Lab assay of single mutants.
Amino acid sequence: EVTIKANLIFANGSTQTAEFKGTFEKATSEAYAYADTLKKDNGEYTVDVADKGYTLNAKFAG
């Protein structure tokens, strides 16, 4: 089991951190699915991958 950390950075400057656990593939998929649920209210996002894929920095356009 691994933990994927998602740093969510919103256009207004606020941030949120979420963690997803499971296999690498499952946890990564859940992190992206969570970011997708936030698109409606926060706009499209881009992701910078860090820490060999164990940290995802998602920046929302607003």
Rank of each mutant, 00 (worst) to 15 (best):
T28R: 09
A18C: 15
Y32T: 05
T28F: 09
F24E: 04
A6C: 15
Q16F: 13
L8T: 03
N12E: 05
K26N: 12
G53R: 00
I9F: 13
D41C: 15
G13A: 05
A11I: 09
E1L: 14
K40Y: 11
F10P: 01
E1M: 14
A6R: 00
A31D: 02
T23F: 06
N7W: 07
G43N: 02
F20A: 02
A58E: 04
Y45G: 01
G13V: 03
N57G: 02
G62W: 06
K52N: 15
D36H: 07
A11G: 09
I4T: 00
V49Q: 06
A61S: 14
A61R: 11
E1R: 10
A31H: 03
T28K: 07
F24Y: 11
K39Q: 08
G62N: 08
E1C: 14
A11Q: 09
I9H: 11
A27G: 03
K21L: 08
T37Y: 12
T46H: 10
Q16I: 15
D51R: 00
T23E: 08
K59E: 08
G13Y: 04
D51A: 00
S14M: 14
A18L: 15
F24L: 10
A33G: 07
D41G: 09
A35S: 04
N7K: 09
T46F: 10
K39W: 04
S29Q: 14
E19C: 15
A18I: 15
N57T: 13
F10N: 02
L38T: 01
T15R: 13
G22S: 04
D51G: 02
E44I: 09
K40S: 10
D41Q: 12
E1V: 14
K5R: 14
T15I: 14
I9M: 11
N12T: 07
G13D: 04
Q16R: 13
S14N: 12
E19I: 14
V2H: 07
S14K: 13
K40W: 11
I4L: 05
K21R: 13
D36S: 05
G22M: 00
S14C: 15
L8I: 14
L38K: 08
D51M: 00
N42T: 03
N57Q: 06
K52A: 14
N42M: 13
E19F: 15
T23R: 06
A6I: 15
T17G: 06
A58G: 04
L38R: 06
D51L: 00
G43Y: 01
L56E: 04
T55Q: 07
A27D: 01
A33C: 09
L38Y: 15
Y54R: 08
A61L: 13
T55P: 02
K39V: 15
F10G: 02
A6F: 14
T17V: 13
T23Q: 08
T23N: 09
T55I: 09
E44H: 10
Y34R: 04
G53E: 05
L38C: 09
E44Y: 09
A58S: 04
F24R: 06
K26P: 01
Y32P: 03
E19W: 15
A50H: 10
I9L: 10
G62T: 07
Q16C: 15
A11V: 09
T15W: 10
T3A: 06
T15A: 09
K5S: 07
G43C: 06
K59F: 15
V2F: 05
I4F: 00
